[in-house]
């Protein structure tokens, strides 16, 4: 009798503890959503403050970015276009390097590599993603730019090309690991069927496996682009801080010159602005908002593409 009451009390207490504990864990999970809400709220609030001082139209169509130094006509300039073109330039060139290389690595790993090669190659690729971006910036500035000079390119000390090269190398693992997952997820039946029809490994991988995994591959491309757009330190260190409008006709020149991306501009403003309250301070949040909108939509887009892949094989 007494024993059963004791057990009843104990299990009552246990149940209460269990409920509290569950609540705490739930709070931790919800906190992660609050971080996103916090990011969006902060960016919107301070960007709004910025747009109260600088008209949205001036920001979106302005071709000059001089947030902390007065220009000749005694004004600060907050045009996002030069920064946007810097970001696009570096993202596109790094994508040209990373997407084919990453896809090739993924295809090799999933279709051709032996178990031993895989166990070496995969971690080696992961190392590329693990090196801090500031170190990549240092690589670009101190070793790659002089190398480009040595092979005869008339590069400036700070140039978009060296930055693009390191950003490209940095995002290879992102392309290769996600693409490889997609390629490995292609059912073996398809490969067997292709071999049965007399296909070689080359035919099978290029004409059967890659097309079957195309949405996963595409999703890895989109994620890599998003990563390149958000990349900050390598670009700040290697490409310099000269906001410059892209001109399609002189794209080769632009690559060899210094350039400034959205992310680099944020870092440079943060350096110049100690306190807060100036338009330059709030401009960081407007830039942050632009950056967030770009990367967020790309990430969501990649997810939608990947979900479609999952449906195909289930």
């Amino acid at each position: 009798m007494t024993a059963s009451t004791a057990i009843g009390e104990r299990s009552d207490r246990e149940r209460r503890i269990g409920r509290v504990v569950k609540g705490v864990f739930l709070a931790c999970a919800v906190l992660t959503v609050l971080i996103t809400v916090g990011i969006i709220f902060t960016l919107l609030r301070d960007a709004t403050t910025f747009f109260a001082q600088v008209p949205v139209a001036d920001f979106l169509t302005g071709t000059e970015w001089k947030p902390t130094q007065l220009t000749g006509d005694g004004e600060y300039k907050f045009g996002v276009l030069p920064l946007l073109s810097g970001t696009i330039l570096i993202t596109v060139v790094s994508a040209v390097i990373a997407l084919p290389t990453g896809l090739a690595a993924a295809l090799y790993l999933s279709e051709f590599a032996s178990e031993t090669t895989r166990s070496v190659l995969k971690p080696a690729l992961e190392i590329l993603a693990g090196i801090p971006t500031i170190v990549y910036g240092y690589f670009a500035l101190v070793y790659i730019t002089p190398f480009l000079e040595w092979i005869g390119l008339p590069v400036e000390t700070f140039n978009a090309l060296s930055a693009s090269i390191v950003v490209g190398v940095m995002i290879i693992p992102m392309v290769s690991s996600i693409s490889e997952d997609a390629l490995s997820a292609v059912p073996d039946d398809l490969r067997q069927a292709a071999y049965g029809l007399g296909s070689t490994k080359f035919d099978t991988s290029v004409r059967v496996v890659v097309p079957a995994a195309v949405s996963g591959i595409f999703s890895s491309f989109v994620l890599a682009l998003s990563r390149a757009i958000g990349e900050t330190m390598a670009v700040t260190v290697a490409a310099g801080q000269t906001p410059r409008m892209l001109s399609i006709l002189e794209i080769d020149q632009n690559l060899l010159q210094s350039s400034e991306t959205i992310t680099a501009a944020m870092v440079n403003v943060a350096h110049a602005e100690g306190g807060g309250g100036t338009p330059a301070y709030y401009s960081m949040f407007a830039l942050g908002l632009v950056l967030f909108v770009f990367t967020f939509s790309l990430n969501i887009g990649a997810e939608i593409i990947r979900d479609r892949l999952r449906e195909e094989y289930q």
Partner: peptide, 9 residues
């Protein structure tokens, strides 16, 4: 996937 510089903001 949010860029690190945005976390800084």
């Amino acid at each position: 996937g949010v860029p690190s510089v945005v976390y800084g903001l």
